[in-house]
Computed example of a mutant assay.
Amino acid sequence: MALIRWEPFREIERWEPWREMESLQQRMNRLFERLMPDGERALSFGVPAAEMEETDSEIHLKLEVPGLEAKDLNVEVTADSVSISGERKSETKTEGKGVTRSEFYYGKFERTIPLPAHIQTDKVQAEYKNGILNLTLPKTEEEKHKVVKVNVG
Rank of each mutant, 00 (worst) to 15 (best):
F109E: 03
E53W: 06
T94F: 14
D56V: 15
V99H: 10
W15M: 12
E64Y: 10
P66V: 03
A50N: 07
A50G: 09
E69V: 09
W18T: 15
V75C: 06
R27F: 03
W18L: 15
M36Y: 10
M52F: 15
M21C: 12
V77D: 04
K97R: 13
L63R: 01
G46V: 00
I84N: 01
T78Q: 00
W18H: 11
Q25G: 02
G39V: 03
E76T: 07
D56C: 10
T78I: 02
G96E: 07
L61H: 06
G98A: 13
R14P: 10
F104G: 13
E64F: 09
K108C: 05
L61C: 07
L24Q: 04
F32E: 14
T78L: 00
E51A: 11
V99I: 09
S90V: 09
T92V: 15
E110L: 01
Y106T: 05
R19V: 11
F109A: 04
R30Q: 06
E53R: 11
E58I: 14
V77W: 00
H60N: 15
L73N: 05
S83R: 14
K89I: 08
R88T: 11
S23Y: 14
E76D: 10
G96V: 02
W18D: 15
E20M: 04
E40F: 09
R19M: 02
G46N: 05
Y106H: 10
K93F: 08
T100H: 09
R41H: 07
E20D: 07
R41A: 07
G98V: 10
L68K: 09
Y106C: 00
D80Q: 06
K71S: 13
E58R: 11
H60V: 01
E95Q: 10
R14E: 14
P17A: 10
S90F: 04
L31S: 04
Y105W: 04
W15Q: 07
R30Y: 04
V75L: 08
A50W: 15
E95Y: 13
V65T: 08
D80F: 00
S90P: 00
E22A: 13
K108E: 11
K62A: 06
Q25H: 07
G96N: 02
D38E: 09
G46P: 02
H60Q: 14
S57C: 10
K108R: 14
F109Y: 02
R30C: 05
R27T: 04
L73V: 01
F45C: 04
I59M: 08
K71Y: 02
S44Q: 12
S83Y: 08
H60I: 06
S102P: 08
S102D: 11
V75P: 02
L68E: 12
R88L: 03
T78K: 03
G86K: 00
G67M: 02
L63N: 06
E91L: 12
S44D: 12
G67A: 08
V82D: 05
K62Y: 06
